[in-house]
């Protein structure tokens, strides 16, 4: 399904990090965003990366992205301490694309997931979060229908006006594999970006590897020794639920319970 080729879609990609080995990899959500973009406009998709263009980890991961069948990736070279949201904004202010696809949150750094929100706010366009698919785009009315992932595997349909920012959820279709030949043919177009502003907010931060969070204990607020003893030795109490022996009556009761819990 390829929509209007004049549609201008940009996907933002970042460098992911494997949660256990710590090796650089395609960021999972960004790869899904890229997959969605490729599905929508194929070759007309623009891909943008902002970061240190020269580091070997960046180049290897961007090659992985190129291996998904991209002609080129635009790279804005900024120093490590730069505020990326600012750079992105400067880049999009001149010509705002119709759809900006991003992942939900980065896999390293602060990982606050604020980038799509900041972009939407500054460009004054709507943002739809954790989408899994873009069902249709109507260029005449300037409206798109997207599917949003909800907890417990549910989906919601949303109509949103173009242009918009969309962050892609892990529930979106899995990205295609990266092909070595494509990766070798694709090009990285590096642009120096000199007006970057440093992220001063992070200067006073201390970053350590994550500690195990303490497990919450069951607090017993018993006033008497007998209550404490009961709480310490209590087993699952039998017979607390309702037991019904008649099949018709039990069917009615189960139906009532399902209705009360809004499962039907």
């Amino acid at each position: 399904m390829i929509f209007d080729p004049s549609l201008n879609i940009v996907t933002l990609v970042s460098i992911g990090e494997h949660p256990l080995s710590g090796r650089p990899r395609r960021a999972e959500q960004d790869a899904r965003a890229l997959e969605l973009g490729l599905k929508l406009v194929a070759d007309n998709l623009q891909v943008l990366y902002i970061g240190q263009a020269k580091s070997p980890a960046t180049v290897s991961v961007l090659k992985d992205y190129l291996g998904m069948g991209l002609g080129q990736i635009q790279v804005l070279d900024v120093p490590p301490q730069a505020d990326i949201s600012n750079t992105l904004l400067e880049n999009f202010k001149a010509n705002c694309p119709d759809i900006i696809l991003t992942g939900g949150r980065a896999e390293n750094g602060e990982s606050s997931g604020m980038i799509p929100y900041l972009l939407a706010e500054q460009l004054n366009i709507p943002i739809v979060t954790s989408i899994t698919d873009i069902v249709s785009i109507d260029m005449l009315t300037g409206l798109a229908e997207v599917l949003q992932a909800l907890p417990r595997g549910q989906r919601r349909k949303i109509k949103v006006s173009l242009p918009f920012v969309a962050s892609v959820d892990m529930a979106a279709p899995a990205p295609r594999q990266s092909a070595y030949g494509c990766a070798m043919r694709g090009q990285l177009v590096v642009k120096d970006f000199n007006q970057s502003i440093d992220d001063v907010g992070q200067r006073h931060w201390q970053v350590n590897s994550a500690q195990m969070r303490p497990k919450r204990l069951k607090i017993v607020k018993a006033k008497t020794a007998a209550d404490r003893f009961k709480a310490a030795t209590a087993k699952i109490q039998g017979g607390s639920g309702k037991v019904i022996y008649d099949s018709k009556e039990s069917a009615q009761e189960i139906f009532k319970l399902l209705r009360d819990e809004e499962m039907l």
């Binding site: 990090e17 949660p19 980065a106 990982s111 931060w205 201390q206 350590n208």
Partner: peptide, 11 residues
């Protein structure tokens, strides 16, 4: 929690 759950940021 930062870095998709891999780091702790004290701020």
């Amino acid at each position: 929690r930062g870095g998709a759950g891999k780091t702790d940021i004290t701020r």
